[in-house]
Design a protein around this nucleic acid. Structure first.
Lengths: 338, 338
DNA sequence: ACTTTCTATGAAAACGTTTACATTATACAT
DNA sequence: ATGTATAATGTAAACGTTTTCATAGAAAGT
């Protein structure tokens, strides 16, 4: 569009380009009246400094890239929204990296930060897409980086997390308190730390209650609705059906409830369902879903803050910032039948 | 991170930086063996060309910016996902602009394209954040731009749309076919074209059926769940309650259904509800929501394609690309009571 | 009155690419 | 053998900023 550059402003207001740059970046260095003159010319022409010229010189892009497996997912969407908001406040732009679970794309977005197109990266997938050399400390080889949601198995990177194990334990304890003893679990994908932690919490709650763990009641899912549907179908075929199901995500819980309705089970009279996340649709389900709330906005905000801290050249105080979860009891869980 | 530049690769493989650049950008111009040598050096060092150097020279950023009111919204999320995918294929990156309905932010993201930080812009809000001069044709003053979802009231810009009026008409016709005559409408926000079109479709269907339009049955909403809840509360207070409600978004329909359940109405036995959008959660509701499907993925893909066409310097064939909607009948609509 | 410090500005280098132009070597046609 | 087209590469300018360094004038300290 506009072809006007800093030099045009400079000549138009009778100063050098250096002064124009200064009026924009460090106004305190330029006298009041020249400043006014320059600002006027800028306003009159609608001049916007070209970012590439600036970036090339300063070696800062002003961008951060966020790598997510699926932005359509309510958890991810909620988080990225907060990230964007926080980034915007700090003058950063966010580059959206929806990986669709393809490694090639993860790599591609990671390259953006090594090629200088972004100054930092937020990773919500369980992989670290940077090749590391073993002869140097990891922290020296990585760009400003924060990891959340799907934990990367590496203790040397900054993370913002919730206590998944305790969250799961709380969920199961809630069911236990209602008298359930036959409690199924629908896990997340693969062997990601978050899923493993939740599984550990599930097991801990049961063993603490002296209930033996029944492998048939533990089903593998992938956090998505469809897998919740399938998991519940499997569970219903069991000779000893569970009276309660703990799904590791709300989406799966919603799927599970759909299956239950399909086969005429009443929730929670026949079977209780509890989820994990508290996405916005959970409270709109019928029955309203009991779940463990993740503070999505807080997670996003803190991710960005920890990243900003690094971008400013500081070392954040701690590697891990842990945020609180919360049991929110609604109507999908009730006392054990009989 | 890495401080290696094109010159390092050049000296390392005994050629000039020009040749290195050529091996990357136009490999056909460099002989096979030098090409191999250069590629080797690049691989060995992990060199990534600095985007700013390149962009500064070529005057192309390789970015597009998408401006949306709320990325948390399933419609927006679905669309942006397809955009990202298509952009990625074409070698573009997408800058996320969640405006949170603030004009300042809209402006900010528009500036990215005028300042060269992005080559094109996709706008999903009803405003055109560019100042135009009246003495020139509009198309000459705008950057590559595509508008969708919330139509901008300007016929000179590229849009991808569905036929909102026909969609609404279809929805209402569906209710009419079920015998309903007292049909409420819950509108979208403000006086955006999309909402106005849907309202027109609603009115047309009714007048065609010789049903008088009752202003009390038309409630203003804002597409969000909360407003669906409130709208339904208003409707239930009416002396002559509607037997069917057409919500201009699924989110509002979902809210409306919640209100209905709260006051013990049966859906659809007492009151039918139909939505608009077909977000993924609609089929998971109880009862499953009847709605008008928007082809979100198609919309996103086409938006990006029309933009790409412009970015390649071509004029897209038509200003408006219209995509088909589809009535999907599920369980939230049924015959009129009695 | 004379140095010293400070303030406001300008000149010019630097950032890392791409590419127009120039150059050389090679193949081809006559 | 001569000239011409072609292929492969190098040289250097250009992109639009920011910032170091230098400079000039003003203010301040003696």
């Amino acid at each position: 569009m506009s072809k006007i550059g800093i030099k045009d402003i400079a000549s138009q207001s009778g100063v050098s380009s250096a002064t124009v740059s200064r009026t924009l970046r460090s106004p305190e260095l330029v006298s009041e009246d020249t400043r006014k003159r320059v600002l006027e010319a800028i306003k009159a022409t609608g001049y916007k400094p070209n970012r590439f010229g600036a970036s090339l010189r300063t070696q800062k892009s002003g961008n951060v890239v966020v790598v997510m497996p699926d932005i359509t997912n309510q958890v991810n969407a909620g988080i990225i929204r907060a990230i964007e908001s926080e980034a915007h406040k700090a003058g950063y732009c966010v580059l959206l990296g929806d990986t669709q679970n393809q490694e090639e794309r993860e790599q591609h977005y990671a390259d953006m930060v090594t090629s200088g197109q972004a100054d930092g990266i937020l990773i919500f997938t369980p992989n670290l897409p940077f090749s590391l050399k073993t002869d140097k400390p990891i922290s020296e080889q990585l760009p400003p980086l924060v990891n959340s949601c799907e934990e990367i198995a590496n203790d040397d990177i900054y993370k913002v997390v919730i206590d998944n194990k305790a969250g799961a334990r709380t969920a199961v304890q809630h069911l236990l308190d209602l008298g359930h003893t036959c409690i199924a679990a629908v896990m997340g994908p693969k062997d990601t730390p978050s899923t493993l932690d939740r599984l550990a919490g599930y097991k801990q709650a049961l063993t603490e209650a002296n209930i033996e763990i029944n492998r048939n009641l533990i089903i593998r899912g992938d956090y998505r609705t469809e897998s919740g549907i399938e998991a519940m179908e499997k569970l219903l075929r069991l000779r000893h059906r569970p009276t309660a199901v703990f799904c590791f995500s709300d989406d799966m819980a919603i799927g599970a409830m759909n299956t239950l309705r399909e086969y005429d089970y009443r929730i929670p009279q026949d079977i209780s369902v509890i989820g994990f996340d508290d996405i916005s649709y959970s409270k709109l389900m019928y029955p309203k879903l009991t779940t463990i709330r993740q503070p999505l906005e807080d997670i996003g905000r803190n991710c960005m803050r920890v990243l900003l801290e690094q971008l400013r050249g500081n070392k954040p105080a701690q590697k891990i910032t842990e945020l609180p979860f919360e049991l929110v009891v609604r109507q999908s869980t009730g006392p054990v039948p009989r």
